[in-house]
Structures are given as structure tokens and as C-alpha cells.
């Protein structure tokens, strides 16, 4: 009856002996591994799953056998124990089924630990939704770059790093010149297309460690960690030129835009991330008011 119950549960249930030989392999495991119980029972778990032969897995089994404790292995740290194909179709980026596992003891009537059980739960769908939510929380849905929330978080984080390690930090703020005219002349869908193009071009120019975000409307911010203002100016000029050279083709229209950029480096006398932001914002304002399509540095 117990064997039947173990076959009915919607989770993997494997029983190992003290030598880590498989004693029971339930139907769920058979289904997702493609390995029938008659093939795997009485074999060492490492014969079929050599990936488990790690000091951590052995330590966990030893802990269970020595203390009778229950070990909870979270998906966040381990991703999976058994490399099964994922069954979740929300997100195809998972190579293997994401698993939350529990390893614990099974005792005999004399209280001595006789076996180890492992319960395997498929959490791929939950992880996929979590990943989706996280992405939605930090990305701008129109342009596909980071959003303002993530930028504000990164600015604070980089400011703290600067305070601790004294590494340079530069901020570029830029916006599309006369963007309202683009919207008025070609329509908002064209305006959206321009914003997406500006984001894509900018993302292709900066490094992976830089944080490019849409701050709001047609305004963008780019945080350059471990970069001084001299190097930042080179990046800003590259951005300006790449967008100046770009010709957007939207339906039958050819649209060209320029951007104005303000740049500032975090100096020790700046006591808050807001000060750095204000300096870059003032530089951007100056770039706009003195002719546009240019880079102005401040601070």
C-alpha cells in the first residue's frame, strides 16, 4: 500500500541505502527520468547520475546519516539534483527541470537510521514566473533596456561602492532632441520606434557592466562604473555620433534624430547620488540650451 502511495504522489521519491544504492524509485521519477525502476533499483545512484558525485552531496548524505537531520536544497542555490528535461513551456531557457529537494532519514523500529530518502519537487514553472516578474520589475517594456527603478537602485549601489573603494563612477544623461516634433510629425508609433532604436544603438556601444536605462519619456541614463570623466566623454561622443549617423526608416518615412548629452563624474565632495544626478542633468540642460546634438561635461 505504501509503495502504491509513493507512486501516486506528484513528486519524485527515491530511497537510498547507506551505500547510496537505490532501493526505491517512484513512478514520478520513472516518468521524468525515462528510467524504469527495474533498471535502476539496486544500482548506485552515481551509476545513473554521476553529476551527484560532489563533496556537497556526499556531505549532505553524511549529515542525514549522522544526525538524522533533514536537508532542504533550494532551487536558488542548486537549480536541480537530477538532470531531467523541463516540462514547463512558459520559459524555454531552462536546460533542466528546476527542482526543490529534501533529503532526510528513514529509521528502523530501533530508531537507527536505515535509509535516506530524497523528495524531488518540480518548481520550474514557479521559477519561470518569478524570473518573468523580476524582469518586468527592472526592464522598460518599450525599449527592452533597464527601467528607472533599476537605475535608481544601481545608482545608489554604485555610489556606495565608490564610497567604499574610491573607484571612479561617471553618469551620462541624454535625451532625443525635439522628440515632440517627431511624435507630432510622424505619430507616436514612430516616436516609439525612434526610442527603441536609440536604446538598441546605445546598448550596442556600452559595456556589459554599464547600466543603460530609460529614465522616462525620451530621457535615458547610462551609468559607467569604474570609468572617469575622460573615458566617459569618449563613450558619450560615440553615442552622440552613432545616433546622428542613424537613419530610421519607419513605414515610408526616413527619420533622423540627434541626442544631447550631459555627463558628470562622481567626486568625493558629492555627498549623495542625487548630487551626481543633478550635475549630469544640469550638463544635459546646458547641451540642450546651447544648440543640441552635443556633449557637455560638469563636475
Amino acid at each position: 500500500m505504501y509503495k502504491q502511495a509513493l507512486d501516486l504522489i506528484n513528486a519524485g521519491f527515491v530511497i537510498l541505502d547507506k551505500e547510496l544504492k537505490i532501493i526505491h524509485w517512484n513512478r514520478w521519477l520513472s516518468l521524468y527520468s525515462g528510467i524504469k525502476p527495474e533498471l535502476i533499483v539496486d544500482h548506485s545512484v552515481f551509476d545513473f547520475f554521476p553529476n551527484l558525485k560532489t563533496p556537497q552531496f556526499l556531505r549532505n548524505c553524511n549529515t542525514v546519516l549522522t544526525f538524522g537531520t533533514v536537508i532542504f536544497l533550494s532551487q536558488k542555490l542548486h537549480s536541480y539534483l537530477f538532470p531531467f528535461k523541463p516540462t514547463c513551456f512558459i520559459d524555454s531557457s531552462f536546460e533542466y527541470m528546476q527542482q526543490s529537494c529534501t533529503i532526510g532519514p528513514l529509521r528502523g523500529e530501533d530508531f537507527s537510521i536505515r535509509y535516506i530518502y530524497i523528495i524531488v519537487q518540480d518548481v520550474t514553472e514557479i521559477v519561470a514566473y518569478e524570473k518573468k516578474l523580476k524582469t518586468m520589475n527592472i526592464m522598460d517594456s518599450l525599449t527592452g533596456i533597464y527601467n528607472r527603478r533599476f537605475f535608481d537602485f544601481s545608482l545608489k549601489e554604485e555610489f556606495e561602492k565608490h564610497k567604499r573603494y574610491s573607484k571612479p563612477l561617471t553618469l551620462i544623461m541624454f535625451d532625443v532632441d525635439c522628440f515632440k516634433d517627431v511624435n507630432d510629425k510622424y505619430g507616436h508609433r514612430c516616436g516609439d520606434y525612434i526610442l527603441k532604436s536609440v536604446a538598441t544603438i546605445s546598448a550596442s556601444i556600452i559595456r556589459g557592466v554599464d547600466v543603460l536605462a530609460r529614465y522616462g519619456g525620451d530621457e535615458f541614463c547610462c551609468l559607467l562604473p569604474e570609468t572617469n570623466i575622460e573615458s566617459g566623454l569618449i563613450v558619450a561622443e560615440r553615442l552622440r555620433k552613432a545616433i546622428f549617423d542613424y537613419e530610421a526608416i519607419f513605414t515610408s518615412f526616413s527619420v533622423r534624430v540627434t541626442v544631447s548629452l550631459g555627463i558628470s563624474e562622481l567626486r568625493n565632495e558629492l555627498i549623495s547620488p542625487e548630487k551626481l544626478f543633478n550635475n549630469a542633468d544640469e550638463a544635459l540642460y546646458e547641451a540642450k540650451s546651447t544648440g543640441r546634438n552635443k556633449v557637455i561635461a560638469r563636475g
Binding site: T63, T66, F67, T69, V70, I71, F72, L73
Partner: peptide
């Protein structure tokens, strides 16, 4: 969580 689990469990 894992470290606490081992210490508590042991």
C-alpha cells in the same frame, strides 16, 4: 538557510 539547517539539524 542551508547552513542554519545543518547546524540546527545536527
Amino acid at each position: 538557510k542551508e547552513v542554519g539547517n545543518i547546524l540546527i539539524g545536527s
